[in-house]
Design a protein around this nucleic acid. Structure first.
Lengths: 199, 199
DNA sequence: GTCTATACGCCGATAGAC
DNA sequence: GTCTATCGGCGTATAGAC
């Protein structure tokens, strides 16, 4: 028992740490209900001035979060596509990723699934037009061509598959389901895949 | 050809008309990005004062919209439950309702599916705890008991079924799918029901 | 590069004439 | 019950000392 240990009030000096804290606040409170004072306080700063040292303004913080999240998603999807040729396995990989993120980085999934991005990032591409999600549509198209997935509008197949996946994750993020995401992974994957699989 | 007819700039005097206009703006622009000046202008008023005549403040407009929408949803679900005993038919009725609303009152579905209500109505019940949605869980539970729906956590079955339904409607509302909602109704109902039906 | 202090604008809200 | 005028406050953003 080391009684000397002090509770260190964590101070976030680096831009990345401040961004992480902003993401946390944006996803729990909302973008417009989070003031720069909130972000400064949560970062252990006395002022908003420190924030302006790293970011030109509040909006650019949101834009950078958007870029970071969709970029890393895009990279992850590239990885997944490289590991396997089959659409079913690629979709399984993406499902694994989303469930893992829900347990390990719920703010990221909140950003993707709960926030109304169009409201505070109107100039950014809608989710479905980002590189990452265009690739998902391509995976589905390939699955249809290969005969793994039944022949329906790829956008519709996407809505069905990720409807089940994302809505389950939404239920987890809002507390309607209370185990860890991982506990629902295998059965939810099956339900989602069955919704679009051929035969 | 009646050349005398003038384009009448519509003026919204009644509280209900103003509320409808506010809903439209909240769902297209967002709650915080919609000012009372915006609402006044869209209502054909020169000032915000007219609005304060009907509503104590901006927040209460959102709260009233919330109450109206969930109340009428609750009533509709009661109607649907009265018409049939079978869970499958009740869920079918709710699916019909949601698709019809998406075509006829997209702002209402936007309010339910796209807006992050917790951000500007933090004191209201989360969607899943409203009377309407508690009844949906009851319908699913009854379906499990009756052997129509397979034996899984009702919250999970709800996530699957309405994952497919709502995500399809989201795709419609955001333009990823471009026909009328009605065009996707029958196949989407089938996909959603198959995701939870026994055997 | 973090502090104090402060400017500036927008928006919600009110008072009061008509 | 709609207008004019205006207030107060909050939140973003900046200037400048240290």
């Amino acid at each position: 028992m080391d009684q000397e240990i002090e509770i260190i009030q964590h101070k976030a000096e680096t831009p990345d740490e401040i961004l992480r804290i902003a993401l946390k606040l944006f996803t729990t409170k909302g973008y417009y209900t989070t003031s720069l004072v909130d972000i400064a306080e949560a970062s252990g700063l006395k002022n908003t001035s420190g924030i302006y040292h790293h970011f030109k303004n509040k909006h650019i913080m949101a834009a950078q979060l958007y870029a970071n999240i969709f970029d890393s998603l895009n990279i992850s999807i590239d990885d997944i596509r490289r590991k396997s040729q089959k659409s079913s396995e690629q979709l399984h990989g993406i499902t694994d990723l989303f469930f893992r993120l829900t347990d390990d980085a719920p703010e990221v999934m909140q950003f993707l699934l709960i926030l109304n991005l169009k409201e505070f990032l109107p100039e950014e591409k809608p989710v479905m037009e980002t590189a990452a999600f265009i690739k998902i549509i391509k995976i589905i198209q390939a699955g249809i061509t290969a005969g793994e997935i039944r022949e329906i509008d790829p956008q519709l197949a996407n809505a069905y598959f990720f409807g089940i996946i994302n809505n389950t994750l939404r239920a987890l993020l809002t507390g309607a389901l209370n185990k860890k995401a991982d506990a629902y992974l295998s059965q939810t994957w099956l339900a989602a895949w069955n919704a679009i699989a051929k035969k």
